[in-house]
């Protein structure tokens, strides 16, 4: 059991989402960055789709009621206060085993979002095939909402053995290039000038940014006067960029509604939608157009890169044993201690 001592910003339990119900208006939901959730899970010996905790900007402070092995995917500044009073930094991109009474303060996040997975996964109900939280309809996760101080998060015990500590040798890089997209179903609703400024301009993420979408500031996109800024609602998807009458684009994310009535100028390719989840208010972004074939190739490439990354996970050598070995002068110069964390 994990007790939430403080949760200053929204953090929610997410897995890979709730496909199969969009015809009933139920959004896909799921982790904004499914790859990092898969990495957090791999570090704790879980299957990639196991539900973990998704945090944005800042992680909560947690107290552990019993021994728990957890994995951190993200750029946290996490600190562990042991039950015996010692304080240590909790390195990112590795697993940690915490004991009863230990407190983990995940602190501010430099990566926008980050994931915490626990060995066995969080014990919350499976709702319509998923444990993902969709707060707007009080669905999934912990009582259908983000976590709050005083909550208790139970962990599923699937009987599997606690894995030895694992680490990723390198933090997985987040591509810094322009966000790739393909022309949207209603790109013809916009003037040529609007399209040009959309793909050549720079946009800034506004404060209107959550799991449903990001509202962007930048060049105003003018609709074709003959067609207007309204369509008869049709389906949308995470990554779709819709432009209401004010000409300011909105990029949809995992919790987006299933249909929408604004023209969609473009759709971010699947491989890059996860990058959108990391963007913070004030951050700048640019777009670049690719073909459908390039988008599918990028999706295949991302799946392979994730598999390679998971395949590169290594055991963490015990710090204490290393210290002992160094103390005994037995391995001086043989092992690069810097890679042991």
């Amino acid at each position: 059991m994990i007790e939430v001592l403080a949760a200053p910003l929204p953090a929610s339990i997410q897995d890979l989402g709730r496909p199969g119900y969009r015809h009933l208006g139920v959004p896909l939901s799921g982790a904004l960055d499914a790859e990092w959730l898969a990495l957090a899970n791999a570090l704790t010996g879980n299957p990639p789709a196991t539900a973990g905790l998704e945090m944005r900007l800042m992680g909560p402070r947690l107290r552990f009621g019993n021994e728990v092995t957890l994995g951190l995917a993200g750029e946290f500044s996490a600190v562990i206060d042991d039950a015996d009073g010692t304080r240590r930094r909790a390195a990112n991109w590795r697993s940690h085993t915490l004991n009863a009474g230990d407190v983990l303060d995940l602190g501010p996040l430099r990566s926008g979002i980050g994931y915490l997975a626990v060995h066995g996964g969080f014990d919350v109900p499976n709702v319509l095939g998923s444990r993902s939280t969709y707060a707007r309809a009080s669905m999934g996760g912990l009582n259908g909402r983000t976590i709050a101080a005083g909550d208790r998060l139970n962990i599923r015990h699937d009987g599997s053995e606690t894995p030895n500590p694992l680490r990723l040798p390198h933090a997985p890089p987040l591509d810094a290039g322009p966000i790739r997209l393909i022309a949207g179903p209603q790109h013809d609703y916009f003037t040529d000038a609007a399209w040009d400024s959309f793909v050549s301009g720079e946009y800034t993420v506004t404060r209107d940014a959550d799991r449903m979408g990001l509202r962007l500031d930048g060049p105003i996109l003018e609709h074709n006067a003959a067609l207007g800024a309204d369509i008869v609602s049709d389906a949308v998807a995470p990554g779709a960029i819709q432009v209401p009458g004010d000409g300011r684009p909105i990029v949809l994310l995992a919790d987006c509604q299933t249909v929408g009535g604004y023209p969609k100028i473009a759709t971010v390719i699947h491989a890059d939608v996860r990058r959108l989840g990391h963007l913070l208010p004030g951050q700048k972004l640019r777009f670049t157009v690719v073909s459908i074939d390039e988008a599918i190739a990028a999706r295949r490439c991302a799946a392979q890169a994730l598999a390679t990354c998971i395949g590169g996970i290594l055991p963490v050598a015990s710090e204490y044993n290393l210290d002992a070995l160094y103390g005994a002068n037995l391995i001086d110069g043989v092992i690069d201690a810097g890679t042991a964390y």
Binding site: I182, P185, D234, A235, A237, K264, I269, H270, I296
Partner: peptide
């Protein structure tokens, strides 16, 4: 119509 690389819309 292409709704990204993961969805097709028949209009």
């Amino acid at each position: 119509l292409a709704l990204g690389d993961g969805a097709l819309t028949l209009e």
